[in-house]
Structures are given as structure tokens and as C-alpha cells.
Design a protein around this nucleic acid. Sequence first.
DNA 1: GCTTTTACCATGCACTCGCATGAGAAAAAT
DNA 2: ATTTTTCTCATGCGAGTGCATGGTAAAAGC
Lengths: 195, 195
Amino acid sequence: MPKIVDHDARRRHIADAVHRIVHDKGMESVSLREVAAEAGMSMGAVQYYVATKEQMLLLALERIGVWIGERIATVAARQPTPLDVLRTTVLELLPLDEERRYLNRVGLAFQASSVVNDNQAAAMRMGYTHLLAFLAEQIRAAQAAGQLAAGLDAGKEASILYAFAQGVVNAALVGHYTADEVTALLDEHLGRLSA
Amino acid sequence: MPKIVDHDARRRHIADAVHRIVHDKGMESVSLREVAAEAGMSMGAVQYYVATKEQMLLLALERIGVWIGERIATVAARQPTPLDVLRTTVLELLPLDEERRYLNRVGLAFQASSVVNDNQAAAMRMGYTHLLAFLAEQIRAAQAAGQLAAGLDAGKEASILYAFAQGVVNAALVGHYTADEVTALLDEHLGRLSA
DNA sequence: GCTTTTACCATGCACTCGCATGAGAAAAAT
DNA sequence: ATTTTTCTCATGCGAGTGCATGGTAAAAGC
């Protein structure tokens, strides 16, 4: 029998191929044949690691969540204050450079498809819950540090901030805002939360 | 030759069928055959009024924009103050009842597809420009009426507000927020803009 | 009344789709 | 050394796709 390989690595490789296709041509262009070609594998090999197209899409969605989470953890760990963590986390969600635009484009496609797919919707909700909890935690820490106004409702502010970030993505991805305009809007909003 | 019919009415009828399919099953399920069946027409008849699938999708997107615009115009005309107009306009964008959820679901699908389709993206940008201008106008009117703080940048505030609304839609549509929660977030935000 | 036009239709065509399935080679287990 | 397992692959199958195209009946125009 062949040398044993790392199944998770194969699956990540497949998910990466899905991301690239979604990014370039949209969700409808994701087919087994396209993914196999993009991944440099045969269709049969793709099917070996991921049994159905639905599973493949869910895997790709989950990988996006992990990717974003890792980016946030990396930059957050470097920030000196809770308000910096908060700001930087939100900046990670905005299409301010190539990698973030890529994540946003792919993410938006999954946003739409998860509306009509229960498994994807469940994965999305989990993502929301985690990220909103993290944002609320940073808001509370910034309040405790005297950086944000003490009277703010951290949970609501987290929700408003995250909604703002997601909404700005929509407009920016079709070319309505520049990266500088996006950052300025965020800072305008954060400015009014300050102590 | 047959009795002459209203081509625009036929096209609206086709767009309605597209909306229903997008709402129920997502953008990928839109096919000529599905649309024809949903519209109660033959494929050939659909092709007679709308030459290509791409045109059909663009038509459906434009119809959504018109629909939302009409809803907003109708409710805005009934509001007593600029701040009421502003609030009500934003409420129109949120999934607070069946029709608005329907519009949001279909709108989000088009949001995603317009990222990889230039014609759709151009239509989207036009929609952004109009709606943001309207929101900014109401903010300025509310400032002049002493309802909102005089120092606010109306353009930026319109952008932040609209981004918030769009972003909240994403989460709400996958079941993260209830309608009441959504309204409460909006009022929290509007509250802080008050004079 | 005759001709032209319009609306609606059915179907062909070349292609693509997801999933299923079996083949075969080589590493792993016994 | 033999058997089992794993990986990779090619291909079949039934279904579906967008677009093109020609047919026909009836209203509109003259």
C-alpha cells in the first residue's frame, strides 16, 4: 500500500484550492473538477479525502475561520493596550491589504451561501459567538484601563463594531471605499467610544 | 402575430421568479430552467425577454434596488421628523419582518456575486451612492433640526450607519440575532448621535 | 384579404456536474 | 513471504446547464 500521508494536510490543501476558486470566480465556480485541477490532484483523489461537495465547502469555510482567528491572535498578542487590541482586531477584518481582501472576498461568498445551508450557518454562528466575545472582552479591558467610556455596554458595542466591519466589507469589495476611507470610518467610530 | 404585451412587465415577472429561487435555494440554483418553471413560462419565452443568464441576474439585482428604494420612499414620506426618517430608513434595511428578511437574503446573495461580476458591482455602487447620499441628507436635516449633534460629519455617519445595517444583516440571517436585538443595537447607536 | 410581426414554444447541441466504483501499485502489518 | 491496507487514479452514469434555432398561431399593419 502507499506511504501513509497526512489526511489533514491533504484536506487543508483542498480547502486552499476551494478558496482560490471562490476568490477568483465566486462560489458557483466551485466544482469537483475545478477544485481537483486547482489542487493538482485527480477527482478521485479529492473524493478520497472529502466525500461530498458539501463537506468540501464546509471544510473550506471552517478553514477561513481558523485563518482569520490565527491572524487576529498573532497581531493581538503584539498590541500594548486593550484599545490597541480592539482596534487591530477590527482592522484584521477589513479589506486593507491583499490578504485581508482575499479573506473578505471568500468570507462574503460563504456568508451568502450559509444563508441557504444549515451546516454552514451553524459554523458561522459559532464564529460570530467567539469573535464577539473576544471583542467584548477587549472593550471591557479597555474600559477598565480607562481607555473607553465606562458607561458603554460592552456586548452591544462589540456587536455594533463587528456589524460595522462586516458591512463596510460589502461596500469596499465592490469598490465603493478605499482602504484609507475604511480605516478613517473605523477610527471615527472608535473615537466616540473613548473615555 | 400575437397580442402585444408589456415587455417590462414580463421582465419584472421573470425577475420576481429569480428572487424567489435565490431566496429559497441560493444563487447557484438559479438556472434558466428553474426560472422558467418558477415563472410559469417556457425556457424559450424567458429567453425571448432576457437574452442571457447574466442579463437576467443583473435585471433581478436592479429590481431589488428599485424595491428597496420604493419601500424607503413610502415609509420615509410618512415620518414627522428627519431623525424619524433616518431611523425608519435604516429599519427598512434590517431583517425585521418577512419582506425585509426576503430582501436581505436576496440582497446578500447578490452582494456576494457582484464581487466577481463587474456589471453587478457597478449596479451595487450606484445603489450605495444613492442611499448614502439620502442618509447623509437626513442626518444633516436632523442636525439642522437640533435632533442630532451639530458636530457630526454627516457623510461619515451615513457610511458608519449603513455599514452597521449591512453587517448586522449577515449575522441576523444565519440566526445570530433576533429582530428585537437588531433594533436595540440600532437605537443604541442612534442614541449616541443625539444632540 | 394578405403580409408582416410578435409571442410563445420545443428541442438540439456540446458541455458540465456530483457521485459511485473498480483497478492497480506499493507500503504496512502479520 | 503473504496478506491487508492505503492512496491515487480513470471512468461511467444519470442528470443538468446555457444558448441557439426554427416552428407556428394569431394579432397588427397595410
